[in-house]
Amino acid sequence: MTESVPQQSRQSAADEWLRTLPCRIGQIFVDRTAEGAFALRHRDDVNREDLAVYRDAEAAVAIAQYDDAGVYRPLKTAPNLRHGWSLMLADVTAVRVALDLFYPGRIPAYVAWRRGTLKTTPLRETLERQTGMYRVTAKITDEQANELVGSFCRSDGGCLRTIRWDRDIQGAPPSTLLPETKFDPAHDQMGKGEPVIPLLCQEPCNLLVAEARKVVKGSAE
């Protein structure tokens, strides 16, 4: 016997934060309209009136795909979310679908962190797990890793996530080149000093792993 669970119930734990609106997550501003709907837009666009309006949560896929210059965004938490749009959604379920598409995997990470169950994985462990063409990344030196993370993950121009992982099992910092605020979930990585729901990084991403490969390959030549 399996009991059937209504779709709505999966919201209860995750979306209590949507009760206190407006709220900000990454570069997105979420507010309630006079009609009781939800409105999402770029945080830079809060006072703009000339926004293109979308009403389907799945529109987030297309909005998040390219930056203002039309360049593909391989990293959805990079600080280059497109401007000029507004997404009007009827209910919390739709908001959740949209945010999962704008910032894939970030809400589950946030929920786990709030519950105190977010498991983080050190950079060294991620690199040592690799196979195939990425196995070589395990050879990156601490100095190289320090430099790579310091430039690739930085909030101004790199990635807006708050890093929660360490460099290794001994707890070395990911990079001494990053400010302390890069590791602080209370800090607004967009630099506006506003209260935000943080985009947490619980494990080095595959883009960083691919960069590590370039570093190791480059130094071998």
Partner: peptide, 14 residues
């Protein structure tokens, strides 16, 4: 994104 590692954190609700 989301990565397979991210997927490990999904399905925790409902």
């Amino acid at each position: 994104e989301p990565s397979m590692r991210d997927a490990l954190l999904m399905f925790q609700e409902g």
